[in-house]
């Protein structure tokens, strides 16, 4: 999933400084799963913003909605009547950064992001998420025991660890596993240690934003 986290309240309040009525839009996709921008978080942020404005003695109304997704135009359309008829001065999106971009494309009101989109990752445990993918556009994890050296090695090395690997940990932080230690252990468990002697050629990064913004087209899916 895309993992995100809420911006500091002060930063969001600065964005909302001039408005009296806003639409706060959550997303039921990835950001619900990583507890950053689902229905619950929309309620919490709305309440926090109202408290902050009451403290300043300012009038402030928040309309709360959470859409199925914010990365598909048909769901964005569901808030059209509110934005166009209810005197909405600004939209605050709690989706990953795709959401506010879709909202901004559709509506002629200022759109603000309430979240910082951090990475593509997964849950390690309740309340803890880690990065597992950098969307390099050419997956190679099968060569490395199912562990991604691009995202999980701090240096994205392809041919073994650097000198900063010690006791299974990375030199950048003793809490960060050395991906190459993990790869070694995994290959050993799979009985494929010999494969580690193979030299992996220089990776072709042309699929990784080399040509600017990327696009996937499925002709069979087009209407």
């Amino acid at each position: 999933m895309v993992v995100a986290e809420r911006k500091p309240i002060k930063e969001i309040l600065a964005m909302m400084a001039e408005y009296k009525k806003i639409l706060l839009v959550g997303c039921k996709g990835c950001v619900t799963v990583c507890c950053a921008g689902g229905t619950k978080e929309v309620g919490i942020l709305a309440s926090a913003l109202r408290i902050a404005k009451k403290k300043e003695g300012k009038e402030f109304e928040v309309i709360e909605r959470t859409l199925e997704r914010q990365c598909d135009p048909e769901y964005i359309e569901q808030v059209a009547s509110i934005v166009e008829n209810d005197g909405i001065e600004a939209i605050l999106s709690m989706a990953c950064s795709v959401g506010p971009q879709y909202l901004a494309k559709r509506f002629n009101v200022p759109v603000y992001p309430a979240l910082n989109t951090t990475f593509i990752g997964g849950a390690l445990e309740h309340g803890v998420w880690a990065e597992f993918c950098q969307a390099c556009g050419n997956c190679v994890i099968h060569h490395f025991g199912g562990i991604c050296p691009v995202s999980r090695c701090s240096k994205s090395l392809f041919n073994g660890p650097c000198g900063g690997s010690a006791g299974g940990k990375c030199e950048i932080n003793p809490e960060v596993d050395c991906a190459w230690h993990l790869i070694y252990e995994r290959m050993k468990a799979l009985g494929k240690l010999d494969d580690m002697a193979k030299v992996f050629p220089i990776k072709d990064w042309s699929t990784s934003r080399d040509g600017g913004p990327r696009k996937v087209v499925r002709e069979d899916m087009k209407l």
Partner: peptide, 10 residues
């Protein structure tokens, strides 16, 4: 929930 507490204060 967190929002129950916030809404009480609000």
């Amino acid at each position: 929930e967190i929002h129950h507490i916030l809404e009480a204060l609000e």
